[in-house]
Design a protein around this nucleic acid. Structure first.
Lengths: 219, 219
DNA sequence: CAATTTGTCGAACGAACGTTCGACAAAATA
DNA sequence: TATTTTGTCGAACGTTCGTTCGACAAATTG
């Protein structure tokens, strides 16, 4: 509803406050009154900027997810080695996770709270994100870099490692982005690597352009 | 409150219905009226068996977690090889996950909903569970079976893989316990294994040679 | 300046929430 | 059979929920 520059800034303040509240109490457990208090805007005043609680959650998730995806595609642009791509994906994901723990928890933890069209759009982004990871993995497999592992299981396990971080990571005592990304990427790459080293197994086959563009697949 | 045999059976029915409702709508999103409807017991009638909504969640989580932990300790009893222990842990966890997806999602997803003493007791069980996994990993490390990896990060990443399963696993299309456990245990074990092969890294301090034990089958 | 748009909020709406109470039947005990 | 215990529930309690309305000030526009 609001269009002015100043108004956009205030909306952002509200969304950020909402994210903090959802982070602390969960979407269902949080009340609009909590968000009013946290943002310093009156209860009725909020509804000048948003039109429902759902929309607030949608704004948080959409912005966060789109940003993560965008950055990933940027950083992936110049790389062709799938192993390097995989490392970039892990680093990008964890980087954003540790830099924006509030928004990322809300994204990870509340993925069933949205309904209708909101839900569908977030799902579309998610599928695209998943497809990118799957393509990278397929690339690795086609070059004989992986053991025979169910790709879907492998990729979703990687997401599990990364997304679970919000349940345990304490910034004061646990490793930062660099170490964490290296450890997890290392675990995954060694975890799915072919044979006992990266050299065994079939040769890289011919250059394959499988689904390069990320047309959706089911998650 | 209820003590009779018949009463205990009915309480169990109520708890199971509650788990189903929490599974579908989340703890905060679920109402006692939903549980009343799902269990076929009137709203007031529920309070003859339980004394609060929180207690219902506590009963689900405590019973589920205790059972998983109990089974784990049983199955771990006769084993001394840490690699074999790790495999048993993964299999035990995923086995229960796929056999009781409803309760396990409620356990994984609602771990911040409990408060006070209830919360503390679940936390105690969780820590115990985590400690077992960490001990197994330390055993592996002490025998030179692992690379230099932050044990906490490694173990919690494994839990991430496993606990994330509830967000994506579809029984009709995805692998069952056997394949899933083998894949994930394999990923983890290769993922943290020492060196790329037996070449690099420090020597094993004690008897066994590392790779033999780690070279589990590839899915 | 007057007129209009933009922004803010107290107060209230109806609905849903977790929980309690008291009445009462069925079952167990004497 | 008389009495107590166990199990069940309709109705209501007080509270909180998401959202709306109308009044009104501040800023912008003509």
């Amino acid at each position: 509803m609001p269009v002015g520059r100043q108004a956009q800034r205030k909306l952002k303040r509200i969304v950020r406050a909402a994210a903090r509240v959802f982070y602390e109490k969960g979407y269902e457990g949080a009340s609009i009154r909590d968000i009013s208090r946290a943002s310093g805007v009156s209860l009725a005043g909020l509804y000048y900027y948003i039109d429902s609680k759902q929309k607030l959650l949608y704004l948080i998730q959409a912005y966060t997810f789109k940003t993560v995806l965008e950055r990933l595609e940027e950083r992936l642009a110049g790389i062709s080695d799938p192993v390097e791509k995989l490392k970039v994906l892990v680093r990008n994901h964890l980087d954003y996770f540790l830099q924006h723990p509030v928004e990322m928890k809300v994204l990870s933890h509340e993925d069933e709270a949205l309904e209708g069209e909101y839900r569908k759009e977030i799902l579309r982004i998610k599928r695209r994100y998943y497809a990118i990871a799957l393509c990278i993995f397929d690339d690795m497999r086609d070059r004989g870099l992986t053991r025979r592992v169910n790709p879907r299981v492998a990729v979703l396990s990687l997401f599990g490692m990364m997304n679970w971080v919000y349940t345990w990571h304490r910034p004061r005592t646990d490793p930062g982005t660099d170490t964490l990304a290296e450890t997890m990427a290392g675990m995954f790459l060694h975890g799915v690597a072919s044979g006992h080293t990266l050299s065994r197994g079939k040769e890289p086959r011919t250059i394959r352009s499988r689904r390069v563009a990320v047309a959706g697949r089911a998650a």
